[in-house]
Design a protein around this nucleic acid. Sequence first.
DNA 1: AAGCTAAAGTTCGACACTAAAGAGTACACA
DNA 2: TGTGTACTCTTTAGTGTCGAACTTTAGCTT
Lengths: 178, 178
Amino acid sequence: MPDRQPTLDEQIAIYQREYRDLDPQVEKVVNALSRLDRRMSVAYGRQLATLDLGNAEWEVLKELVMAGEPYQLWPGTIAKRLGLTPAAMTHRIDRMLTQGLVTREQDPDNRVRVIIGLTDTGREKWLQVMRKASVFEEDLLQDLNTEERGHLGELLTRLLRRVEDAQPDAGGRLTDLE
Amino acid sequence: MPDRQPTLDEQIAIYQREYRDLDPQVEKVVNALSRLDRRMSVAYGRQLATLDLGNAEWEVLKELVMAGEPYQLWPGTIAKRLGLTPAAMTHRIDRMLTQGLVTREQDPDNRVRVIIGLTDTGREKWLQVMRKASVFEEDLLQDLNTEERGHLGELLTRLLRRVEDAQPDAGGRLTDLE
DNA sequence: AAGCTAAAGTTCGACACTAAAGAGTACACA
DNA sequence: TGTGTACTCTTTAGTGTCGAACTTTAGCTT
């Protein structure tokens, strides 16, 4: 009973033995994607820990920066994009408020709405993480030359378009985030 | 305050405005990866829900099948591969036992060790999920021809090698799962 | 206008995970 | 042979998230 994790190819070979109709080429791409994301998450997690930031807070920070000036979003919007319930969002914001990363104010146009804003501290924190992360990211892509990086980015973008632009009426197999 | 999620390119453009030294090519790849994984997770989650299976249970099932005959692993091994604490593993196994997906027995060679085994029910469940998932996966890659799929798989594998084979002494930037 | 319906966010109870402490076992070394 | 040390899994207390009920508001309908 070996303790070593099977390589991607070993994994797929066994899967195929269990389920003969499986397409190895598809399986390779899909499983490589999920393995990569897991490793990246761990790596990010370590960087974040050194900056006293949790992954939950980091996700919210990213969304607010991504929104651009004036760095404001509704809680419900952030929740949807992150795949969280509104309840979880409420608590995350609570925590981030005490850390001075965000502000919470009432929407003047709709009194039941709330506006989450990024503080300067929050923006600075985002920058600190990105500076550290970019080192890791560059390291991850080290073995690919510029052309390969571009090609990879292009292929991934096409996959992404397929899921992010998915229309519910187009067969319903690919469903969007809500 | 638009509710629409920024596209990948919009996201990177804004990031670059915030942090000028950022490499857009690298950022595109990394963010596409994480976006894709999120979408895939949602898609898998829906398939699993229709089969009365949680993502936690699914992860364990995958590891046991991946181990191959005789479908046995130590709890600690599974925990490490999934990035969980041993405590979480104990509880997951408890739940899966009541669902008849796995067995838990004492290791004859070491009485403090435990062996988790896959039941026929568990293997059947894995197969059911894979059958449903393969439809989604094929759909995801629909816009790529065979050559492109192969190329994508190869590029991703090279990235994966970089993180999974990472030696702690090679600079320490890329760290393995433990 | 008045009431109805839909929507946003918060509160509450249940559950899964983490960190840390604990119990039991194997192995190394004197 | 006895002791120390490392290792494996479980137990316990605290934290985060989910599902669901609830409050408040906006906008539609008649």
